[in-house]
Design a protein around this nucleic acid. Structure first.
Lengths: 206, 206, 206, 206
DNA sequence: TATGAATGAGCTTTCATTCAT
DNA sequence: AATGAATGAAAGCTCATTCAT
């Protein structure tokens, strides 16, 4: 129990606590990425974070689930921030937007392998419902791009949700490839993926 | 892999032992698929298999790693068998082969969700080196198809390994989608994927 | 989990398991009696029982509650057995029966101090609902005696349940007295109690 | 005990400290009575007291033992105060004094169930030596009454200490009864107890 | 072959207490 | 006087594995 607060109070977080939590989450991400979630015990995370006791983790996080949840939301927030940045730039057409989306995402994954590996581990081995937060299925940025292309007439007719899933899988699948082949030429992968989905989405004919 | 033993194996496997191992592996697959690998303890697997002791699992498998290895190879063998069946049929061109490959795989995944879920769990949460068996990178059937298309001249120039990876990811990603949305229209997903990679690989222009 | 049984099977108990359970319960009783329930951890119980691991306690008992439950029912069974023995002897009148009941119980408590101390500790510190099993309030042997005396006309009119409670408290209170004064003359206590409740229950007047 | 400090105490207690201690002790009593001593951790007591840190409890009390000791002496002081009040009234004979003693005590217990429950919990589950303070066996008020009756000649011959114990157990046992049956008719219990010990102590014969 | 008892390491979590501020 | 962060020990319990029968 991190502090003794009434159940109703939302609990403001002090600077030092925020810092400690971040430190612990970071150590957790690294540990999970390196050893797998099954080996990421409190003991190992504490050791990596340089903490004197596993009790300190319990002090700052209600339980393991909350810690893993923080791992997920930390990484997801980083992705979101990256994407927001990416999407801020206006582009003239949907094809260009799609290309940017794919390349931007691939680049992010390439530069955040540790985080992506951890995310994967938590989602699959952590008893987490992946996609649970997308359940309401708010229109993803990717689907927005695809719809725009169809509206513009530059994209052919296809099922937007399925095509979005295909593209997202091509992107999300990259961490898998990197796990089995860390030497993979990521840039080439990105370019090839961009071309692939350019060809797959663009309106055919003259 | 089901019937073929390596030449180095020290002892032949009796019929009864083979049966027991299969029973245990099957129980393991079901348990992993249903509760996640983190919850798939010997105790739970034994209970599901109707065994009286977890010791029996240890008796038949050197250790947990071997059991998980058997889970993987059992599922992989099933995939391989399916694919071998698929590829036996001659098709006139690479495009048709690719289409068959994608649709066949998707269909397999759809009809073997339990196994695919287990495979995913073991690969990611099981401390398993996925892709370890591809290390020497034997030419996969998929790459063979892509190369054939380029040789024939019906496929455009692209990086075969990367394109193979993209296609494989679209296929392997299906279990993820199913996990988050079990109601997904799998047939439509397969058809759209086939179309996508048809457009992405076929030679452009007149 | 002591074994891997279907949830429906009532689980027969092997001889060796029965013996181990008895050994552990006995060690628990001694430990609780000597150090108090708060100090009776699995570690200390295991040490006293000469077990190599606390895991063995978990192996034989579902959880701490089950172990404490066994402690209670073991002691309660011993009391019951003693009482059954006592009540087998027919006595000519209720007054004599009451006297036997009191003296017999006091004697039992005196010769089972360890068990009684443990029982007390579990009931109060163990999160146990004492009297929970009497909830249906089956007619206790004590109340039966009191009723008999009133029917016979040798006992005066009084509230049977309350009088039974008073007598039972005089008996159950003995462990408390022994705890604070182990040198107490138990025989005298018993005789004085018998006289007290003889005077308190017998019909007055000529 | 509430206002009287031992002569050896090194430092006087400020008003604010006294208030805090009282607040903490009260929260401890409530917590122990409601959840049992095993669940009455500093964290839970602090939460109930509205304190921001468990450290504050450690600040005001040397250790857990001192806190529990304060719980005991607070309740005992309340009992003592009640009894002093009771005994102030002169009564003409020992029988009447005994009757008042029993009824007064029962009434007190009935109106201080929370405190009595806590006292019980601490004495039994708290690793506390109950009766420790009676070690020198100062003549209890109850024994004084019994002796007076024997001196007056209105009480029969009996062992004063044992009879005192019997009466005290009938009184102290009430919290147990209330714990198992909160609906118990306390008044009737008191009256029946008074009658019982009246009959048991009064001089027989013509 | 199969069983169930046993092992010891490890797990997350809670605890009373300490300490700098 | 009070706070909240930190500590390290201990808790109950689960785990894969071993072993005698």
């Amino acid at each position: 129990m991190s502090a003794i607060r009434s159940a109703t109070a939302p609990a403001p977080r002090s600077f030092i606590e925020t810092a400690r939590r971040a430190q612990i989450v970071d150590a957790a991400i690294t540990t999970i990425a390196e050893m797998g979630i099954a080996s990421a015990s409190y003991a190992r995370i504490a050791k990596r974070a340089g903490l004197s006791s596993t009790g300190l983790i319990s002090y700052h996080f209600e339980n393991r689930e909350e810690l893993l949840g923080e791992v997920v939301s930390t990484v997801v927030a980083a992705i979101g921030e990256h994407m927001a940045h990416q999407l801020r730039v206006d582009v003239s057409n949907a094809g260009e937007a799609l290309r940017r989306y794919i390349l931007g995402n691939v680049e992010f994954i390439d530069s955040h392998r540790r985080e992506m590996k951890a995310l994967l581990e938590v989602f699959i081995g952590g008893g987490f419902e992946y996609g649970a937060e997308e359940e309401e299925h708010v229109l993803s940025p990717l689907e927005a791009i695809l719809r725009r292309g169809q509206r513009e007439g530059t994209f052919r007719r296809f099922d937007v949700r399925v095509m979005a899933a295909l593209i997202q899988r091509a992107i999300d699948g990259l961490p898998f490839l990197l796990a089995s082949d860390p030497e993979l030429d990521v840039d080439r992968y990105g370019l090839e993926a961009a071309t692939t989905f350019d060809l797959a989405t663009r309106r055919q004919g003259p």
